[in-house]
Design a binder for these strands. Structure first.
Lengths: 187, 187
DNA sequence: AGTTTCTTTTGACATCCGTCAAAAACCAAA
DNA sequence: TTTGGTTTTTGACGGATGTCAAAAGAAACT
């Protein structure tokens, strides 16, 4: 739910006027590695654009941290459910590297969408894409072995493996870190 | 993706005028048990409303049939992706009982949505609800044992267990029929 | 009732994967 | 380079679940 806007709304696909409008109402912030962007229980009032660095979204389940998405350069990220509903967030967003972010408040975003219809279209498309991905991950989780899931990640998203610690990736794949380590050794 | 409209657009929640408009442009069909409503590869041009009976959506994976949703009385059902895009369906829809269905063509539906805005709202809400459910099932698939998934189904959707063969339910839960049988014996 | 067919259960076994614990490798800072 | 912390690997073990095969039970048909 969280990174609806990520993975699709590539900054460079936007028209020049839309880009200018965005740049006019966002502010830059710099964060250190391991900083928390959003903590569980907080209300998330901003949408972020990740210019440099990477981060992850995770939640707690049975005392374990479950990383369920990663964000990288040029992704839009936020705690989507909290951002749209105003409810406290159920997830945490944490920087995995020192990062440069641009943020925009919910009010400013709504104004933007109003004035630049192309952005609204992007949001809707992002929505669909995000869920196609979720559906695929659901099938993978149920019907693929740990090794198959790892190999698929290796093919489709090698950048995740290069920049995220193994433990985060393991929970993302739904397996233990030890199993992932062994799977990796076999290949 | 398939049963976006199912699970939410309960017929009785609609206004009288909308209901009349629907009834004016749908046609009734009767199907026998095990009939195929949609077969993989076909384009699905109709949205169905299930008045009486029940059915399932399934696809093939590694030579096995995976049932991924069930439809019951008062559900709207279709092969959603095929219906909206016009692409051949990747899933099959099969009756589990002799059933009475109402069908509406895509063109007639679009006209309906145009003339009855409340229906459009229902579609959007159904969309969101469907994906929340998918997200929940994703978490269950990854982090719950077979027994926990079964018990949750028993609580939340006992009607499925009463009307669907065990083999269908097993693949729906992502476990083998034998395991489901044993889980059930233990409770 | 008897027969056939489909569905569910039971048994035996192998395998994948999680858990716990310890060792090894890697990294960063002094 | 040494030290301390973090990340990754390795080993041993047990449990959950899949697979294959057969038996038992239900339902449908004659």
């Amino acid at each position: 739910m969280q990174q609806l806007l990520a993975h699709l709304a590539n900054f460079h696909h936007l028209s020049a006027t839309a880009r200018e409008a965005i740049q006019a109402c966002v502010t830059e912030t710099v964060h250190a590695k391991n900083d928390m962007l959003i903590t569980q229980g907080q209300v998330c009032r901003y949408l972020y654009f990740l210019e440099k660095g990477c981060l992850r979204g995770y939640y707690h389940l049975d005392g374990k941290e479950i990383t369920h998405w990663f964000g990288f350069e040029q992704d839009f990220v936020t705690s989507f459910h909290s951002f749209t509903t105003g409810q406290p967030s159920v997830e945490n967003i944490q920087l995995m590297e020192g990062s440069v972010l641009w943020s925009i408040s919910r009010e400013a975003l709504l104004k933007l969408l109003d004035e630049h219809h192309e952005l609204e279209r992007l949001v809707r498309i992002a929505y669909e894409k995000y869920y196609l991905r979720l559906e695929e991950r659901y099938v993978n989780a149920q019907f693929k072995t740990a090794a198959e899931r790892y190999e698929q990640l290796l093919e489709q998203s090698p950048h995740i493996l290069e920049r995220a610690p193994l433990g985060y990736v393991a929970s993302y794949l739904g397996i233990s870190q030890e199993t992932l380590s062994r799977v990796r050794g076999r290949i």
